[in-house]
Measured scan of single mutants.
Amino acid sequence: MQIFVKTLTGKTITLEVEPSDTIENVKAKIQDKEGIPPDQQRLIFAGKQLEDGRTLSDYNIQKDSTLHLVLR
């Protein structure tokens, strides 16, 4: 499925993911596309910070959802 990741600069990254993918996995995909190390990434969805060990389906993230990427 496709999800979107919006950065603070207003750029939107499109990712191909599975509901069973972990947040860690998603961060690795963002690193592949953007070169941002996962340890600098914070992903936010519906006002919640997403934890590495959980999956997209744990957070009820569905296709065409938009996550927000904050760098630390």
Rank of each mutant, 00 (worst) to 15 (best):
G53E: 12
P37F: 14
P37Q: 15
K11G: 05
L8D: 11
K48G: 11
I30W: 01
D21G: 07
Q49Y: 09
I30Y: 05
E34V: 06
Q49I: 11
G47H: 15
L56E: 00
I23P: 05
I3P: 00
G53I: 07
R54V: 14
L50N: 00
K63G: 12
G47T: 06
R42I: 14
V26M: 06
K63W: 09
V17H: 03
S20Y: 12
L15Y: 04
T22R: 08
V26W: 01
P38W: 07
N25V: 13
V17D: 01
I44N: 11
R54Q: 03
V17R: 00
P37L: 15
E16A: 04
V70F: 05
S65T: 15
L8P: 14
I13S: 05
T14Y: 03
E16I: 13
D32T: 08
S65N: 05
T9Y: 03
A28F: 06
P19S: 12
D58A: 12
Q31K: 07
S20T: 14
L15F: 03
K11R: 05
G53H: 07
S57A: 09
L43G: 00
N60F: 13
Q49W: 09
L69D: 01
E51V: 06
L56G: 01
E51N: 04
V5D: 00
Y59D: 02
T22I: 03
L69P: 00
T22L: 09
I61V: 07
I61H: 00
D39V: 13
R54Y: 11
H68L: 03
Y59M: 11
L71M: 12
I3R: 00
L8R: 10
T14G: 06
L43E: 00
L43D: 00
R42W: 06
Q40S: 08
D21H: 08
Q49A: 10
D21E: 05
T9R: 07
S57V: 13
G35M: 08
A28P: 02
T9F: 03
Q31E: 14
Y59P: 00
T66E: 08
G47M: 11
K48V: 14
V70Y: 05
M1Q: 07
Y59W: 02
G47Y: 14
F4I: 11
P37W: 10
V26A: 04
I3D: 00
G53M: 05
D58H: 14
I13K: 02
T14E: 11
E34M: 14
I61W: 01
Q2V: 11
L8V: 15
L67S: 01
K6N: 13
G47P: 01
I30F: 02
I3L: 06
Q31V: 05
L69K: 00
V17K: 00
I36K: 03
P38R: 04
P38K: 05
A28I: 15
Q31R: 10
I23N: 02
Q2D: 13
K27F: 06
T66P: 02
E18G: 12
L56N: 01
T22K: 09
N25D: 15
D52P: 10
I3S: 00
R42N: 12
E34Q: 07
R42Y: 14
E51W: 05
L43N: 00
I61K: 00
T7Q: 13
N25H: 09
P38Q: 15
V26E: 00
E51H: 15
G35F: 07
A46S: 04
K33M: 13
E34A: 11
A28W: 05
Y59R: 01
R54N: 12
Q40P: 02
N60I: 13
L15G: 00
R54S: 11
E18W: 05
V26N: 00
M1F: 07
I23R: 01
D58I: 03
N25L: 14
I13M: 06
R54L: 09
Q49V: 05
Q2G: 14
K48N: 12
L8N: 11
L56D: 00
S57N: 10
D52R: 03
I36G: 02
I30R: 00
P37I: 06
Q31A: 14
E16R: 12
V26H: 00
T55K: 07
G35Y: 06
S20D: 10
Q41L: 11
M1R: 04
P38Y: 06
I44A: 04
K63E: 10
P37H: 12
A46R: 09
E34L: 12
D39Y: 15
E24H: 08
Q62A: 05
I44P: 00
A46I: 09
N60Q: 06
K48Y: 14
L8S: 06
V5T: 02
A28G: 13
Q31L: 07
L69A: 02
E24I: 05
P19K: 07
Q49D: 15
I30P: 00
F4M: 15
K29W: 08
N60V: 11
Y59F: 05
L43A: 01
R72G: 14
S20W: 15
D32E: 10
G35T: 04
K11I: 15
N60L: 03
S65P: 01
E18L: 15
P38M: 15
F4D: 12
P38F: 07
R72A: 14
T12A: 08
L71S: 11
L67F: 04
D64I: 03
G47Q: 08
L67D: 01
F4R: 10
H68T: 03
K33Y: 09
D21A: 09
T66K: 04
I61L: 04
M1D: 03
Q40E: 15
Q49N: 12
S65V: 09
Q40D: 07
K33L: 04
T9G: 13
S65E: 05
T14S: 06
L71H: 12
E18P: 07
K48P: 01
V17T: 12
L67H: 01
S57I: 15
V5S: 01
D32R: 04
L15K: 00
N60D: 12
K11D: 13
D64S: 04
K48D: 10
D21K: 11
L8I: 07
T12L: 04
E51M: 03
Y59L: 06
M1N: 06
D52I: 10
N25S: 07
Q2Y: 10
K33N: 14
Q31G: 15
L67Y: 01
K33P: 03
T9P: 09
K29R: 09
T12P: 04
F45I: 03
K27P: 00
L67A: 01
K27L: 11
A28Q: 03
R42L: 14
F45K: 02
T66M: 03
A46W: 11
R42H: 15
I30L: 10
A46Q: 11
Q49H: 04
E34T: 04
K63D: 03
S65R: 03
I36V: 07
E34N: 11
T12K: 09
R42S: 07
I44G: 09
K63S: 15
S65M: 06
T66G: 03
R72E: 08
D58K: 04
L69N: 01
V5W: 01
D21Q: 09
N60E: 06
I13T: 08
T9V: 12
V26I: 15
L69F: 02
D32L: 05
V5M: 03
L67N: 01
P38S: 08
L71K: 12
T55G: 03
T9D: 11
K29A: 14
E51T: 03
T55R: 15
H68Y: 02
G53S: 08
R72D: 08
T55A: 13
G53V: 15
L71N: 04
L8E: 14
D21W: 04
G35I: 03
T14A: 14
V26L: 14
I3Y: 01
T22Y: 11
T12H: 15
V70A: 13
F4Q: 11
L67K: 01
I44Y: 13
K27V: 03
F4H: 05
A28K: 05
L56M: 15
S65K: 03
D58Y: 09
L50V: 11
M1Y: 14
K33V: 04
L71T: 10
L50S: 01
P38N: 13
A28N: 10
R72S: 12
E34I: 11
E34R: 06
F4G: 07
L69Y: 02
K6G: 10
P37D: 15
I36M: 09
H68G: 04
L50K: 00
E24M: 13
Q49P: 11
K33H: 13
S57R: 05
L8F: 10
D32W: 12
T7R: 07
E24T: 13
D64G: 04
T12D: 10
K6A: 12
L43R: 00
D32N: 11
V17W: 02
Q62H: 15
K27I: 05
S20H: 12
D64L: 05
D21S: 03
I13Q: 04
K6M: 15
D21T: 11
N25W: 12
D32P: 04
S20N: 10
Q2F: 13
L8H: 05
S57G: 14
K63N: 11
K6L: 09
H68D: 05
I61T: 02
I23W: 01
I61S: 01
S57T: 10
Q62P: 09
E18Y: 10
L43K: 00
R72T: 15
H68I: 03
Q62T: 09
L50R: 01
L43M: 05
D39T: 14
I23K: 01
Q49M: 13
G35S: 08
L56Y: 01
D64T: 15
E18H: 13
K6S: 12
D39R: 13
V17L: 09
I13Y: 15
F45G: 03
L43S: 00
N25I: 13
E24W: 11
A28E: 08
G10N: 12
L43Y: 07
T22P: 14
K48W: 15
D52A: 07
G35L: 08
I61F: 03
E51F: 04
I23T: 07
E24V: 07
V17S: 06
D32I: 10
T12I: 07
V17Y: 08
P19Q: 14
